[in-house]
Nucleic acid binder design. Structure first.
Lengths: 67, 67
DNA sequence: TTATTAAGTTATAAATATATAACATTAGGA
DNA sequence: TCCTAATGTTATATATTTATAACTTAATAA
């Protein structure tokens, strides 16, 4: 079972963005962002790319699977 | 409803790889690769990154959402 | 202390991806 | 042409993500 590591929280902090704001920008729920930040599951490619676009970084900069 | 465009088939052709071979490399079914190549759905981030790794390209080079 | 805002967490429902199996179609070589 | 391998396609089952709602916790300010 590979674990997902993400830098979403760091990029949010860097830009003073709340979970709620990010969620609205990409059209998902706040809880979904929270779960994702805490590695609860493997998101869809669309959602991952939408978030990467918000922070203007490549998907691989934001997400990494370990193991 | 955004449409998914992918270059998987092109990269497979470039390296003479069958759907079945790619599927086994990343641990999914042949039909799953087929459906993905034909834009049937939005894959998981893990699967997208696994495929990108096989062809040694960034995720964004392989997948693009239109609209 | 009380109130408020952001984030964590849990349970359940709904939506969607993926597996599975079966059959159809296409392309290429003998 | 006939065979065969590769791919397309469809239906259904299973697994997983995401939505929803509710409650909790942490931090901060009044």
């Amino acid at each position: 079972m590979p674990k997902l590591i993400t830098k979403i929280k760091e990029y949010r902090a860097k830009t003073n963005m709340k979970q709620e704001e990010l969620a609205q920008l990409i059209g998902v729920r706040r809880e979904t962002i929270g779960h994702l930040e805490n590695g609860k599951y493997n998101p869809s490619l669309k959602m991952a790319m939408d978030i990467a676009k918000v922070f203007m970084v490549p998907v691989e900069e934001l997400f990494q699977f370990i193991d």
